[in-house]
Design a protein around this nucleic acid. Sequence first.
RNA 1: GGCGGCGUAGCUCAGUUGGUUAGAGCGCAGGACUCAUAAGCCUGAGGUCACAAGUUCAAUUCUUGUCGCCGCUACCA
Length: 484
Amino acid sequence: MTKFYVCTAIPYVNDKPHIGHAVLHLYADVLARYHRQLGDDVLFSAGTDEHGGKIAESAEKAGKKPQELVDEFSASFKQGLEKLGISNDRFIRTTDNGHEDRAAIIWKNLEKDIYKNTYSGMYCVGCEEFKTSAYVKDTNGECPLHKRVYEKIEEENYFFRLSKYNDQIKKAIESDEFTIMPVSRKSEILGLLKQGLEDISISRSAEKISWGIPVPGDATQVMYVWFEALMNYITVLGYPEHADFKQYWPADVQVIGKDILRFHAAIWPGMLLALGIPLPKTLYVHGFVSSNGQKMSKTLGNVVDPLEVVDKYGLDAFRYFFLRHGPSSEDVDFTWEKFESAYNSELANELGNAVQRVAVMVKTYQDGVIGNTPESKHDEGAYNQAMADFRFDKALEVVWEQIHGLNQFIDEEKPWVIAKSDDKDHLREVLATCVSNLLEIAELLIPFLPDTAAKIQAVFKDGIVRPFEGTLFPRLLVSHTDKH
RNA sequence: GGCGGCGUAGCUCAGUUGGUUAGAGCGCAGGACUCAUAAGCCUGAGGUCACAAGUUCAAUUCUUGUCGCCGCUACCA
């Protein structure tokens, strides 16, 4: 049995989950479901990143202990995943004992490439990152992402000899031994590697940032949160000794957002090389979700809550929109107008209505009896290729072509005309063909719209049409007005 | 400043290893039908393929330049 290990970046939990997190997990979920359907031994891991100064700060503001704060936020992330139908097998928290213990082991195993040095620089607590002097100057001394002034920090830190692995990483990426998708991201990181990676600071003074995993053997330092968070992809498998690690590593796909490419395509592979374990096979990098072409932000007031969409239109409609209209471009643009248009024309009119018209005809003309369904097998090459390329939009396009084909078939055959003749056999044959088409479509939809696929199967499965309550994707009558 | 990408029908995009009529979806218009969630099906609409120059028998597709947009990165000779 082929194994398939997919893991998502673990969100930093100093705020509630947003639509970007939803999309991240959605893509990984589709891969997981697709590979389960193929019969692979799938492990899908997600989780939350919970240490660092920013969380300590948020906790203080909220008058809570860091642990309380991350317990709350982590729980809301976990709950969010459930509501989005994310089928992750594991949920790791970087405050789990298992992760903390194993992070210490990893640190020890990396020690040949760790050294102490004095670091001095401008630091943004928001980014948890030191900034170059040029960048500081460019941004007028204030982080544009977090709207906060940089702090000058000078301290002794541990450093990781990342520069040592520059060429190995580059080679692995160039040769696609470590594949980065889409290709534009591959060239982006190769550009960076061409300039050469510098060693990175991987610890912080425990005095300043106490909310972190202690550096083994040095109580004055805690691990830099990013350095330690990256380890989750193997600590969740029980690195180094657990059977799961041997079974599932290397990851077949790691799914991340474009903002953290550098950590996953440079630092993380450097760590793995230093540990002497294989690199992930593929890194899939997705874009952001914009709204009307603009970045979603609280100040603009255009933030869309994924759960609001799910509550209003249903889970599968949410999944559909981002899978069909997402991965084709750098960023997916969400507007209620676009969403509703896709919902009505593609889900309600084309798919939902096709299911309805077939079900009703079988019921009306044949008392619900379908009879023997012929084998329906379209060429799924394009679909599978699209899945291999992470082009979920293209895969769905293939499915929708098939839906269109079914609607065409119905219009050409005109079962309602046949029904008026005496040719019962022909009618039965035509309708059975429609049903087998729908069952095949349902099969293809399983990774994308699991509930819808199950509903379609439930209606047509056993040779008779089972009544189903309600409507698959009821048409929306009222149009939502987008606020600007 | 460096590296990379983009600019194609009203909108979102695909495509051309250079060559008679440049494609899809949405939107729009028209048509035939009625099983269905007033859904579905069919047809059509004709865009200087950013601009300029160059290479070529021939460029939207190659080269260079200009303008505009975006991503990464940096201040180095």
